[in-house]
Simulated assay, not measured.
Amino acid sequence: MQYGKFLFGLILAASAFSASATTTISGTKDYGGATVGTSCDGQSESQQPVFYLKDGATLKNVVLKAGGAADGVHCAGSCTLSNVKWADVCEDAATMKGGSGKTMTVTGGSAYKASDKVFQHNGLGSTIKIGGGFYAETIGKLYRSCGNCSNNGSARYVVIDNVKLNGVSAGVVGINTNYGDKATITNLKIKGYKSGSPKVCVTYKGNNSGAEPSSLGEKWNTSNCVVKTSDVTSY
């Protein structure tokens, strides 16, 4: 009987646990569907990530628990997030910090309750690719190229394909056209979508002073917003 209790405890530990500090990953780490987390301090930008992915790392099959997602995942270079799920996004789900020529690839997975944004893009000259059936619900934005980071001055790129959204309050993507950012969007499905609700590719005039960037409005089929009305459908 005691042995059975011991085994049950091991099963619980394998399926849901908390860590007190950031976990650094190199190579490939498959959590096998386990739920993990640290803490959450609302929209505080001083929070540490739950996971820090070194250049070339892959994070697979993990759930970041509600109330424990902190600043999510930080990607230092190229990285892959495969079937990563956020039960309740805290600050941001994932931040791309990798520089020129680096790519964060998000394939599958899901994110819920991101009051601001799901994916934050800081690294210049890098790309975030979101697809593989990724799903997000009750979010501000799916993606934002940093509008007022001190390193702003050149382009960032985002590619979105085969993504489904439900409940977007502040536009699907936000990019800074004055720096040459480029968003390429195909096969995007949005619950109850109607033209302009939500806005899809929202453009901004970014800065590096920390000031709030000014919005330049939603754009379609431009060199910065590579998306046609036929690329976005309602479900």
Rank of each mutant, 00 (worst) to 15 (best):
Q2C: 11
Y3M: 11
G4S: 12
F6G: 03
G9W: 06
L12I: 07
L12D: 14
L12R: 11
S18N: 12
A21K: 13
T22H: 03
T23L: 15
I25V: 14
K29R: 13
A34C: 09
V36R: 11
G37C: 01
G37S: 04
S39K: 13
C40G: 12
C40K: 14
D41H: 09
Q43Y: 03
S44I: 04
S46K: 14
S46G: 13
F51E: 05
L59A: 08
V63A: 00
L64I: 03
G67N: 09
D71G: 02
G72Y: 05
A76L: 13
A76E: 14
A76V: 09
T80W: 00
N83K: 06
K85D: 12
W86E: 06
A87C: 04
D88E: 15
C90G: 07
A93W: 05
A93C: 03
A94D: 01
T95W: 05
M96H: 11
G98R: 03
S100M: 09
G109S: 02
S110Y: 01
Y112V: 12
V118I: 06
F119H: 02
F119I: 07
H121G: 07
G123H: 12
L124Y: 06
G125Q: 01
S126Y: 05
T127G: 00
T127I: 06
I128S: 02
I130M: 02
G132D: 05
Y135V: 08
G140R: 09
K141D: 00
K141T: 07
L142G: 00
R144L: 07
N148M: 03
N151F: 11
S154T: 15
A155G: 00
R156E: 04
V158A: 10
D161C: 06
V163Y: 02
K164S: 15
G167I: 11
S169P: 01
A170G: 05
V172H: 07
I175T: 04
N178H: 07
G180Y: 10
D181C: 09
K182D: 00
T184E: 09
I185L: 10
I185G: 04
I185T: 09
L188K: 09
K191S: 11
T203W: 11
T203K: 10
T203S: 11
P213A: 06
K219H: 15
N224W: 05
S234Y: 10
Y235V: 07
